[in-house]
């Protein structure tokens, strides 16, 4: 029961964070704040991933064998207490991708500020549209 409440609490926190971050990406006017909201969303999703791979036992251990010359006992202790490594690996990949996208967006934001002289998304939109008609 306690663990169930804990799980509920963690998911609730993460999803509310994610929802607020999505709102931030959509509704914030500052282009830098949009990027920050995107990174928050990435992080919330990554935390969900880590949590999916968690193991509800008293002492879960990182998925690393504690020695390179294991015997049967160490091996069976390892497979019975290690958390799921796959979501962690997926998260590492996703983190790198997130870093790449954020880096590109940051460069783009600097360029945008340089060319438009403002960081307001609506203002930039207005300037672009105004140039067209």
């Amino acid at each position: 029961m306690l663990s169930w409440i804990l799980v509920l609490y963690v998911y609730l926190t993460l999803f509310v964070t994610g929802g607020i971050a999505v709102y931030g990406v959509v509704a914030k006017r500052n282009i830098v704040k949009k990027i920050i909201a995107l990174t928050i969303f990435n992080d919330a999703v990554n935390t969900v991933a880590i949590f999916i791979g968690y193991r509800l036992i008293p002492r879960p251990l990182p998925p690393i064998m504690p020695t390179i010359h294991p015997n049967r006992q160490i091996y069976s202790a390892f497979i019975s207490s290690s958390v799921d490594p796959l979501p962690q690996a997926l998260v590492i990949t996703a983190i790198v991708i997130g870093v790449a996208v954020t880096c590109f967006l940051a460069f783009l934001a600097i360029r945008l500020y340089d060319r438009f002289g403002t960081t307001d998304y609506q203002e930039i939109k207005r300037l672009v549209r105004g140039g067209k008609r």
Partner: peptide, 8 residues
Amino acid sequence: IYGGLATT
């Protein structure tokens, strides 16, 4: 920015 959101 929206593409990053979509892929996430």
